[in-house]
């Protein structure tokens, strides 16, 4: 690599920083809205069209949710202004650790190691006020 290549690389790095800054500036104040039940159901229907939802719990900060469909937990977590969706065994999701109002569900994938969601209580209470089992 000669000096010309290094200069080219440095200029490119500055250009990347400039473009990222510009993207941040231009998208400021345009954060994705918090997830509501209708949006969560729509997303889950797109991602898991063959699953029948029994219950749905939304994260307190609107950045995700968990639905139960039989033996599965259907997990949604915001990433940027999009969402990650995964199917996890319900019992594993139920046993996930909760600390400081956040539950960490292990997804065990190199590209998606975990989903961290804001839930004051975990496992989530059912409509009758009991912990979902």
């Amino acid at each position: 690599m000669n000096i010309g290549n290094l200069i080219q690389l440095a200029v490119s790095a500055v250009a990347v920083a400039l473009l990222v800054g510009m993207a941040a500036l231009m998208t400021r104040g345009r954060a994705a809205p918090p997830l509501d039940e209708a949006a969560a159901r729509r997303l889950l229907a797109e991602e898991f069209p063959d699953d029948r939802l029994e219950s749905l719990w939304l994260a307190a900060d609107g950045r995700g949710g968990v639905a139960r469909a039989g033996k599965w937990a259907l997990v949604l977590m915001r990433i940027g202004d999009g969402y990650l969706a995964r199917r996890v065994v319900w019992r594993e999701a139920q046993a996930a650790q909760s600390r400081g109002g956040r539950v960490t569900i292990a997804l065990r994938e190199p590209g998606a190691p975990r989903a961290v969601l804001a839930f004051a209580a975990w496992p989530p209470p059912t409509a009758k006020g009991e912990a979902a089992t």
């Binding site: 977590m77 990433i79 940027g80 999009g82 969402y83 990650l84 969706a85 995964r86 997804l107 994938e109 190199p110 590209g111 998606a112 190691p113 975990r114 989903a115």
Partner: peptide, 22 residues
């Protein structure tokens, strides 16, 4: 747009190497 199973991270190393690690 995206992957069938979208990534849950913006970590560059995970983005670049996740499938190789898998």
């Amino acid at each position: 747009y995206g992957l069938v199973h979208n990534l849950g991270t913006f970590n560059l190393l995970r983005v670049a190497f996740h499938e190789w690690i898998g």
